[in-house]
Nucleic acid binder design. Structure first.
Lengths: 173, 173
DNA sequence: TAATTGTAATTGATCAATCAATAATATAAC
DNA sequence: GTTATATTATTGATTGATCAATTACAATTA
């Protein structure tokens, strides 16, 4: 009776998109696979045709890190040295507005020690650091090491300010 | 039969100390009140004589913020301006070594939107920012606003590096 | 004996994961 | 083109385990 709604590939994407939102809003451990299923408009058992709860988190994190890498790559490929850093900052601010849930999910994952999640986080951060670090070096910045460290630190404070609804934590202008 | 082991006040402290460890290790939502009770060497129902699970988290956060405030106050009260910032950084590093669980708990709480927890976090951070901010101003630093922002950002990166076991994230030196 | 300290037993709810089945589509044969 | 067969998509029902919270009761001390 029910019409077949989608392909398997689309279903995977639907489920991951739903999981990112539900996990971010409710918290990974508090959120249930039934809630993810409801948001994806499928049944709870069908989620398990594609993911376990943990593999769903790992996949969600992978999506979130790819989003940042890709946005930064665009900036790096199209920026003069004097606009590189401000361009990266603007790109990150854009992601925080449009994909807030993905950042909230990364923040949650920071304190989850289970190996697959820990590895996804380490890999994501390392990729960002290498990407931005190399771009700073290529741009001819002398203190690239300090610059990348400051960049990451500012990003972390930015995340915290967003998560806890404390915009005053970020310096104006 | 069993000898009375402690006073009510001591019991509260025992339970909070146990909760900080268990919540940090296992994660607040995954951890059970039975695990907290076991670590505190009491029965699970007896935890509820003092706390609900949520009030236990709020109390744990309060302890963790007081720890930082107190350590920073000592540094501020005893440092010459030229050693103020480095003293604060060393104090924070000491806390991260000796009270790692408290920091991990704060990181978890960053993404928990429930009002009592959110309020405990906002209050804690604001108190730190005011304390350090005033100290920077009193020390005669001109760019106190940027300095406090950088200080907090560095702290956030420090937390993340510790939580994810990525010491390379912090700049050597 | 009255208050305080404590626990065993239980409850009601919740949840990740599985199973057994059905519906829809595609393919092939006639 | 209609029938038979296989494949994919999907769900209802269930399960086994877990957990926060309560209740009813026992031991200890002042």
């Amino acid at each position: 009776m029910m019409a077949r709604a989608s392909t398997s590939v689309n279903r995977r994407n639907d489920i991951v998109a739903a999981a990112i939102e539900v996990f971010a809003e409710i918290g990974y451990y508090r959120a249930t696979t039934a809630q993810v299923a409801e948001r994806a408009a499928i049944s709870q058992p069908y989620v398990y045709r594609f993911f376990t709860k943990e593999s769903l988190l790992v996949e969600s994190l992978s999506v979130s890190w790819k989003r940042i890498v890709q946005a930064f790559q665009v900036v790096i490929d199209s920026s003069a040295p004097e606009e590189l850093e401000s361009g990266l900052i603007r790109a990150y601010e854009g992601i925080m507005q449009s994909y807030r849930s993905e950042i909230l999910l990364q923040m949650q994952a920071q304190t989850i020690p289970d190996a697959p999640i820990r590895e996804a986080m380490q890999q994501g951060i390392n990729e960002i650091r290498d990407l931005v670090g190399n771009a700073f070096v290529s741009a001819g910045f002398e203190d690239a090491d300090k610059k990348i460290s400051d960049f990451l630190a500012r990003g972390m404070l930015c995340n915290a300010a967003m998560a806890m609804d404390m915009p005053d934590l970020m310096p104006k202008k």
